[in-house]
């Protein structure tokens, strides 16, 4: 009980720390260059990166369950193209919005089965999926962008109460997933499987079923991320940003999800995704070359991982 309390406090600490860092960053860059805080820039930070925060929610579930997924970037690319092809081939818009969720869940359920039933380590299964999905995508599309999207399809450009829809999705899905993880049997079984698979099995939790469900949910959330990614511009690029999966994993880990599984919340990962987006944008306003962005991300993930290990050793 007290252990869980320390864990809760520990992960909460990470979230408070992230909020402080985000506010400090906004204040610092805002003072240096006031245009950083303009509504335009803030909107572009949130709208352009909300899909990363959404995908990081699913990734957090995967990492809490003691696994990893390096294929999520490629999956988002594939699902975005599927959505675009459906809508440009005359299917109703709602089909194009929902199909990525279903296909994403189906693809990742297969991956989950490989991991849970065929005992393929998640890193190997998802590395292979990364290769299959990204190779298949380029072969299939020939690198061409999809244009001629019908009006009303651009979900990510909608606004509600003058707040862009991706922000609503980001907040709504974070709360939903937070609720799922905190208050449902399923959520608890994910933590149990991640912190001690043997003990989980002994207490009647099916390791295999839990892992397959986690991956299926992760795939469906990836579908939502793909729709947000696909509908933010007037065209759909057939490639996702290089290293997208790393940004998503980094958001989860920096958000306080322990790399060893069993610990973490989805709130932290959303905050971390916001922090990354802000860092990326602030480099431009601080006149630092954007080519350093990945190095900054690398340092951040390394520092967080080392801090996580140090904290674990201290608390035992």
């Amino acid at each position: 009980m007290s252990r869980r309390l320390t864990h809760t406090l520990g992960s909460l600490g990470q979230e408070i720390l992230l909020v402080v860092v985000i506010l400090a960053l906004f204040a610092f860059v805002g003072v240096y260059n006031p245009r950083f805080l303009s509504e335009n820039n803030l909107t572009s930070i949130f709208v352009g990166n909300a899909y990363i925060a959404v995908a990081a929610i699913g990734m957090s579930l995967v990492i809490i369950s003691g696994n990893i997924d390096v294929s999520i970037g490629a999956l988002i690319g594939v699902l975005a193209v599927i959505s675009g092809l459906l809508v440009t081939n005359g299917y109703p818009i709602w089909v194009a919005w929902l199909a990525p969720l279903v296909v994403g869940a189906a693809i990742n359920a297969v991956v989950g089965c490989l991991i849970a039933y065929a005992r393929v380590p998640s890193i190997i299964a998802t590395l292979a999926m990364l290769s299959i999905l990204s190779g298949g995508l380029i072969t299939f599309t020939g690198g061409q962008w999809i244009s001629g999207l019908p009006a009303g399809y651009q979900l990510a450009q909608f606004r509600l109460l003058n707040v862009p829809s991706p922000v609503w999705f980001m907040i709504g899905m974070t709360i939903l997933a937070g609720f799922l993880m905190r208050y449902t049997t399923f959520g608890r079984s994910v933590y149990a499987v991640g912190s001690n698979p043997e003990a989980a099995r002994a207490s009647g939790i099916s390791y295999k079923a839990t892992v397959v469900k986690v991956f299926a949910i992760h795939g469906a959330i990836g579908g939502v991320a793909a729709v947000l990614f696909a509908t933010q511009l007037q065209v759909i690029q057939s490639t996702t940003p290089v290293g997208l999966e790393l940004v998503i994993i980094t958001a989860s880990v920096v958000g306080g999800v322990s790399i060893l599984g069993g610990v973490g919340t989805v709130f932290g990962s959303t905050l971390a995704a916001i922090l990354f987006a802000a860092i990326g944008s602030s480099l431009i306003f601080l006149n630092v070359s954007a080519y350093w962005l990945r190095a900054v991300q690398g340092i951040l993930i390394l520092a967080t991982v080392l801090a996580d290990m140090a904290r674990r050793r201290r608390t035992g």
């Binding site: 990893i68 390096v70 890193i123 290293g243 790393l246 994993i249 980094t250 880990v253 790399i259 060893l260 070359s289 080519y291 350093w292 962005l293 990945r294 190095a295 900054v296 991300q297 690398g298 340092i299 993930i301 390394l302 991982v305 080392l306 290990m309 140090a310 050793r313």
Partner: peptide, 27 residues
Amino acid sequence: RFRVPPLIATLATLALYRGLAEGISQA
């Protein structure tokens, strides 16, 4: 020394080393 699982340790340095390569080369 820090007992970070190799998968995560090298995933982090994958990002870091590639980031350094990009930063140093400036494309």
